[in-house]
């Protein structure tokens, strides 16, 4: 299997957070295709791949639903509640678990292929590059694991919790830590390439594009760092802390702040292009498509904006999100809520 089918380099596959799907639609959904009510809260994002919607749940299961019908193909019971967004690598579905382990399942049968033991609960999403899986943990460890068998390569112990899913380039793994730093580690050795200190915890996944690392901090700011050196290129302050991963598309970075605003910033210099009206608190990542950017808020609304102008295109009110990003395709919109409901909307 070649790298192009096995790589899944960051949260929801890419800087646009589309989960490996397309996001071309501008029309709002107005019809329910199916919905599934799970036994517990959903604290992660769904992922759509090859006609199957994968959803992890705090009841300790990963569910695989047929995207057209909602029929459950299989479900897998892990050892504890799950807060990690799944990722896809070739024929594997991977996720972290509160039991400290990383699980790799066969994506057609749901059978366990391997399980890599760990310490603290894992809330980040596993990322895959060149045959290695990279994962951060709430116990402060960041490690590489062999994609084929789950054997641990190297492990780094950091002083803070890691809730930030990494971005892995061809040389470095980038992620944030609750010690307030953005780390760039050599992905072969785990040694520091550089470290950049912000004013507070960095809990969301960074985006890496055009030689920039884009990361939000609880110190209210969005940082654009030189991907090679870690030097600050620009910094923009929002009204409150940032726990939402940025999405990048169309030469812009889209950042949701706890101040309730979605910011569209120019990638080159951080200049504000547009800013949404307040939507109260948001902690999940937006998804940026060809023409829209869409985000689910904590208090239940999902909003879609014109990517260029910031004009609101549509809104739905189905349930709140903590870390769930909508999956937007030309045919359907998929939403998962922390109340435990998965929606497929036409």
């Amino acid at each position: 299997m070649d790298d192009s089918t096995t790589n899944w380099v960051t949260l929801l596959a890419g800087n646009d957070r589309r989960g490996g799907t397309s996001a071309a639609r501008t029309k709002g959904p107005d019809e329910l295709i199916w919905k599934a009510t799970l036994p517990e809260s959903i604290r992660s994002s769904p992922v759509l791949h090859a006609g199957v919607l994968y959803v992890t749940c705090r009841d300790g299961h990963l569910y695989a639903f047929e995207n057209r019908t909602g029929k459950e193909r299989w479900k897998f019971q892990a050892g504890a509640p799950i807060h990690s967004t799944p990722s896809i690598s070739g024929d594997l579905v991977l996720f972290g678990c509160d039991d400290g382990a990383v699980y790799a399942l066969d994506h057609t049968s749901g059978g366990l292929r391997w399980r890599a033991e760990g310490g603290g609960p894992i809330w980040t999403s596993p990322v895959v590059s060149s045959g290695l899986v990279y994962i951060g943990s709430t116990d402060g460890t960041f490690k590489s694991v062999d994609r084929n068998n789950g054997h641990v390569g190297w492990t780094r112990q950091l002083p803070g919790r890691i809730h930030s899913t990494a971005y892995v380039s061809d040389r470095l793994a980038y992620f944030g830590c609750s010690d307030g730093r953005v780390y760039a580690l050599d992905h072969a050795s785990g040694r520091d390439a550089w470290v950049h200190e912000t004013g507070d915890s960095v809990t969301a996944a960074p985006a890496v594009v055009n030689g920039l690392v884009l990361a939000g901090s609880e110190d209210y700011s969005v940082y654009a760092l030189d991907a090679a050196s870690g030097r600050l290129r620009w910094r923009v302050e929002t009204g409150l802390g940032i726990a939402s991963a940025p999405a990048v598309a169309d030469g812009r970075v889209f950042v949701a702040s706890k101040d309730g605003h979605l910011y569209a910033l120019a990638l080159d210099d951080g200049k504000e292009v547009w800013k949404s009206a307040s939507m109260r608190t948001m902690t999940a990542a937006p998804v940026a498509g060809d023409s829209i950017v869409c985000i689910q808020t904590h208090y239940g609304e999902t909003h879609a904006f014109d990517i260029k102008t910031g004009k609101e295109l549509w809104a739905a009110n189905l349930g709140g999100s903590l870390q769930s990003t909508p999956i937007v395709t030309p045919e359907a919109v998929y939403l998962a809520t922390y109340q435990g409901v998965v929606y497929a909307l036409r």
């Binding site: 504890a80 116990d139 809730h163 609750s178 726990a243 904590h298 903590l322």
Partner: peptide, 26 residues
């Protein structure tokens, strides 16, 4: 959910347990 949206789970030092009473425990 309120604990999580405020970030307590992500901002405390490693080892500290952050728990909502509405969660089931395993």
């Amino acid at each position: 959910d309120q604990l999580q949206v405020n970030g307590y789970h992500a901002l405390v030092p490693p080892g500290v347990r952050v728990a909502g009473l509405d969660e089931r425990w395993t």
